[in-house]
Write a protein that binds this DNA or RNA. Structure first.
Ligand code: ZN
Ligand code: ZN
Ligand code: ZN
Ligand code: ZN
Lengths: 168, 168
DNA sequence: ACACGGGCTGTTATCTTGTAACATTGCGCC
DNA sequence: GGCGCAATGTTACAAGATAACAGCCCGTGT
C-alpha cells in the first residue's frame, strides 16, 4: 500500500500528503485492501460503501460527511444523510476509515486490517492529515490509563499544528 | 427553540459519576482560582461568564453547550446559543475549561493557570471524565510529532473506556 | 459635557452535523 | 410463495455552532 509504505519510510517522512505522489496508487491500494478485508470477514463492501470509501480517499485531508454526500449525489441521486452516515459507520466499524473528532470529518485508514486506534497529525495550514503508528506513544497512553486503573477502550489522539512542509 | 428539549443526564441515573467527595469544594476552588487568574491577566470574568463556568462545574461530566444554555436560561431569560458559545470561548481561551472533542461537550479544567493541553479519561458507563497530566505521555506526543518534523500546537488526547469504579 | 471607541451582551436567522423512524427492495431459505 | 434479514430509500427532525447586526456600558480625550 503506497500510503502505508511511505509512513514506514525513515526519510523526510511526513510528507506523503504533501509530496507529489501517485495518489491513484493510494486509492487503488486502499480499495483493494478493503475488498480483501471484507471478503475475509464475510461482510459486504457494497458498491455504495465502496463508492463512499473512494470519496473519502480522494485526498489525504479529512472530509466532512456532507462533502461526501455532495460528491456521492453526483452519481447517486437518491443519496441522503442517512445513506452517507450508514456507509461511514460501516467503514469505521471495519476499520477502513477513521473519524477525526476535532474536525468532525473522516479519513481513510492507512493501516486497515491491523486493529489500532488512530494517531493523527493534522496540519492547520494545508489540512493534510497523517496517520502515524507509534508504539511508544501507544504504550504511554496505556500506562497513563493503567496508572489510575482506567480500562481503556478507544483512544483519540489528534495533534494539530504545522506539517514539515508548511512550517518551512 | 423549546423544541430542543430540556436538559437531561448524559449518564445513567445511578451515576455517582466519581468517588463521592465534597463537590461544593471543587466548584468553590475552581471559581476562586478563575477569579484570581482573570484578575491577574486583567480580563473580565463577568457574572455571565462566571455563571457559565459554574454550570460547567456542576459535575465532573462534560456538559453540552445546549445543556449549559438550558440551565443558564433558568436565571437568565435572554440566554441564546451565542450567549453560551461566547462564554465558553472566553473560558477556553483563558484555559478555564476544555472542550471534549469526542463528545462535543465541555469540562472544567483542574489545572487552570498552568498552560497545558488536556489529557482525558472518559468513562462510557458513568460519564465521569478525569483530566490527567502525564509528563511521559506528553513527551511521547512531542516525540511522535518531532519524529516526522511536525510542529505540534494543540494536542487532543481522549481515552474512553471504563473508570475503576465502573469496571468493578 | 459630549463624542468616540472597544468590549460585552442581545437578537434574529441560518448553517452544519448527525439521528429517528418507518417504508421498500432484493435475496437466500424453507 | 411466504419469511427473515440485510441494505437502502425517504421523510422529518434533533443537536451543535456561527453569522450578522443592534444596543448598551463605560473609560478616554477634548
Ligand atoms: Zn495519496
Ligand atoms: Zn501542511
Ligand atoms: Zn468534584
Ligand atoms: Zn465510570
Amino acid at each position: 500500500m503506497a500510503a502505508r509504505g511511505a509512513a514506514q519510510n525513515k526519510g523526510p517522512a511526513t510528507a506523503q500528503a504533501h509530496q507529489s505522489h501517485n495518489h491513484r496508487e493510494c486509492i487503488d491500494d486502499a480499495l483493494t485492501r478493503a475488498r480483501e478485508i471484507c471478503a475475509a470477514r464475510d461482510v459486504q463492501l457494497t458498491p455504495l460503501r465502496e463508492k463512499v470509501l473512494q470519496i473519502v480517499w480522494r485526498s489525504h485531508k479529512p472530509v466532512g460527511a456532507y462533502d461526501v454526500l455532495d460528491e456521492l449525489a453526483r452519481s447517486h441521486k437518491s443519496a441522503r444523510p442517512p445513506t452517507v452516515y450508514r456507509a461511514l459507520d460501516f467503514l469505521m466499524g471495519e476499520g477502513l476509515i477513521h473519524k477525526i473528532e476535532s474536525l468532525n470529518a473522516y479519513l481513510g485508514c492507512t493501516e486497515a486490517g491491523a486493529p489500532h486506534s488512530g494517531q493523527f497529525l493534522i496540519c492547520r495550514q494545508c489540512g493534510a492529515t497523517e496517520e502515524i503508528v507509534d508504539p511508544k506513544l501507544e504504550a504511554a497512553l496505556d500506562q497513563a490509563a493503567k496508572r489510575v486503573h482506567f480500562s481503556a477502550e478507544h483512544k483519540v489522539v489528534e495533534i494539530s499544528g504545522l506539517c514539515a512542509r508548511c512550517a518551512a
